[in-house]
Amino acid sequence: MKNSWLIILVVLLFTLFVLELILGTVTIDIIKGFTEFNSVDGNILESRLIRASVSVLVGASCGLAGLGIQTLFKNPLAGPTTLGVNSGASLGVGMFYLIPGVSMHMEWLGLSFFAVLGALAFLFLLIVVSGKSLNLTFVLIVGLFLSYASYEILEVLLQLSDSVGIKSYVFWGMGSFNRANVYSLIALLLVSVMGFVVMKKYATWLNIYSLGDTELKLLTRKSITFNKRLLLIVFGIWIGLITSIVGPIAFVGVVVPNVLKMVIKSSNLNALLPLTALLGAIMVLLADLIARGAIGGFVLPVNAVLSVLGVPIIIYFLVKRISGARG
C-alpha cells in the first residue's frame, strides 16, 4: 500500500517536472531549447530547469524539516517557523538591506551570506539559551521570542532605512524563485542530502522518541540530549538555507507531514521520509506552475498560491482527525 503511494507520487512528480519545463506564460520549442543552448528557447528552458529543480529541492526540504521538527516537538502543528531560525534569516537580510552602509561595504559577501549568518546566529542563541537539559518547551518559547525580537528590530530598522533599502527588503520578503542560480542550487542540494541522510539515520530513534523518554532510555543507549541538539542544528541549518535562497516559505512543512500521516495512517518515519520529500516537492512544483502563470494565466506570488492550496487541505484533514479522535 505504501509502495503504491510511492509510485503514484513519483509519477506525479515527474509529470509536473515535465509540465514545468513545457508550460509558461511564453511558449517555447523544447527540442530547440535542448539542442541550441544559446537561443532564446534555450535560455528560457534553462531558467525553467533551475526553477523546477529549486522547487523540488525546496519542497522536499520544507516537508522533511517540518516532519522532523514536528516529531522532535511532539506537536503536529510545529513547523519550520517554530525554531525562529527563519526570522534569523529575515533579520540578516534586513540588516543587509536596511542598515545604511552595510550593503555598500559588504556587498561582495552577498545576500545569502547574511541570511545564513542570521539563521545560524539565532540557532546558536537558541541552543545556548535552552541550556544543558534542552527542555523543548523552553526551546519553543525562546524560538517564539526570538521571532518577536527580530520582528521588532526589523521594525526599528525599517524606520531608519532609506526607501531603496525598504523596497529591497519588502520584495525579498515576498519570496521568489527568480533569485536561485546554479550555485544556490548546489548548496541546497548538498544540505538537503545531508538532512535526508541524518533523518534516515535517526528515523528509528525518532520513532521510539515519539513514544516517550522512558521507552527511549529502555531501548537505546544514545544520549537523548545530544541527539536532540544534533537534530535541532541540522534542521536549523536546513531551514536557514531555504529561507536565504527563496525567502520565507515554510507552509509546506506543516501541511505535507500532517496529510501524509493521516493518509497512510502511520507515524513511522522510515515510511514517511520518501513520501514527505515527494509530496513536498510536488506541492511546491504545482504552486510554482500556478505562480508563474503557466496554469490559469495569472501571475501570483508563490507564497500566496501555497497558502491557497494548503489551507483547505490542512483544515479538511484536521477536522476529520479531530472528529475521529476520542479526546
Binding site: P76, T204, N207, L211, L219, K261, S266, S267, R321
Partner: peptide
C-alpha cells in the same frame, strides 16, 4: 502521539 497508529505503537523499536 497524535498520528500514532496501533501498529506503530507496537512496532517502533
Amino acid at each position: 502521539g497524535v498520528y500514532l497508529s496501533v501498529f506503530d505503537f507496537i512496532s517502533f523499536g
